[in-house]
């Protein structure tokens, strides 16, 4: 592998890892803070990708459109949808055991897949890369790297930074962390924990949907994409340490690199590399890299 190829693979791995983090962070927060195992989290990613596909013509005819306008409308819709979903379904799951959580959230997967099939159909679609980002950046005389992928990495990095800032520096972040350790005390300090949960859930939903939206132009939009991402995200959450957002970031990047370089270096065993990595890490640290406090 020459240096340019190596660099390209690194960029790909980085971008994939960051996208994974956006999905996995919501999954780990919803588990770490609300104690809910959300199997439908992959569906949120799928919903995002389909939103990017289905909203584009609507947004185009309504306000002149463009990819970024679609993205913005999609994010607003996801926050609203996530908020309603928590109110209608997830808020009933908090005090219940994991079996009931798994049953309901698995049921939601079926509902979302069926709705997707009814509303958009079962075909594979592609989403166009926006004009301004359609080009490539030359890396060497013969190799180039698509601008859109750099854009994805950049916007993910901005979101990761924003997320860590909210989490570490703002009072909202402190309340969320406090809620993860002592729910009753948070309430007795005058904080409406139901509302806090709803906000966290809506944010988790929106992050997953956003990841789906920005991934759509590079990965195409297809049935079953939610299930694939869900499994990988569980790997990320388990490696990172359930409930730990720092752990999720490290694990997502690690999986991004293992998966990308696995495909290049040992194409025959690419499918198992990620799980092999998980097994090795869990042998070394059974609770994951960062155990949530």
């Amino acid at each position: 592998m020459d240096l340019t190829t190596f660099l390209i693979q690194c960029l790909n791995a980085f971008q994939y890892g960051l996208l994974l983090f956006l999905v996995a962070s919501g999954l780990t927060l919803i588990f770490g803070i609300m104690g809910v195992i959300n199997l439908a989290h992959g569906s949120f990613y799928m919903i995002g990708a389909y939103l990017a596909y289905a909203l584009a013509p609507v947004v185009a005819s309504a306000i002149g459109g463009g990819f970024f306008a679609t993205l913005l409308v999609g994010v607003v819709l996801s926050v609203v949808f996530g908020y309603l979903l928590e109110w209608a379904f997830y808020s009933y799951l908090y005090e219940r055991d994991h079996l009931q959580q798994v049953l309901m959230t698995y049921g939601l997967i079926l509902v979302f897949e069926e709705l997707r099939s009814l509303l958009v159909g079962d075909n594979v679609y592609s989403v166009e890369i926006p004009q301004v980002l359609a080009g490539s950046i030359p890396l060497s005389e013969v190799m180039t790297y698509p601008t859109y992928r750099l854009f994805v990495s950049a916007i993910c990095l901005v979101l990761v930074g924003a997320m860590f800032w909210v989490f570490a520096r703002t009072r909202l972040g402190m309340m969320i962390r406090a809620g993860a350790s002592n729910r009753e005390m948070v309430q007795s300090l005058g904080i409406d924990i139901s509302f806090l949960y709803r906000v966290v859930f809506a944010a988790g939903f929106a992050l997953a949907a956003f990841a789906g939206m920005v991934a759509a132009p590079v990965s195409t939009v297809y049935p079953g994409m939610g299930g694939e991402v869900l499994i990988i995200c569980f790997v990320v959450v388990v490696i990172g340490g359930i409930g730990s957002i720092q752990g999720a970031l490290v694990a997502a990047l690690l999986i991004g690199f293992v998966d990308t370089f696995g495909k290049v270096l040992v194409p025959g065993a690419a499918g198992v590399m990620v799980y092999l990595a998980m097994a090795l890490i869990l042998l070394w640290k059974p609770d994951g890299l960062f155990k949530a406090g």
Binding site: R177, S181, N182, E184, M185, Q187, S188, A292, G293
Partner: peptide, 24 residues
Amino acid sequence: ARPHQVARMGVAYVPEGRGVFPNL
């Protein structure tokens, strides 16, 4: 009333076991 509403009526709680958030 729910606990946060009671707290907002001007009631503070210093619980048994202190209730300090260990991760903050």
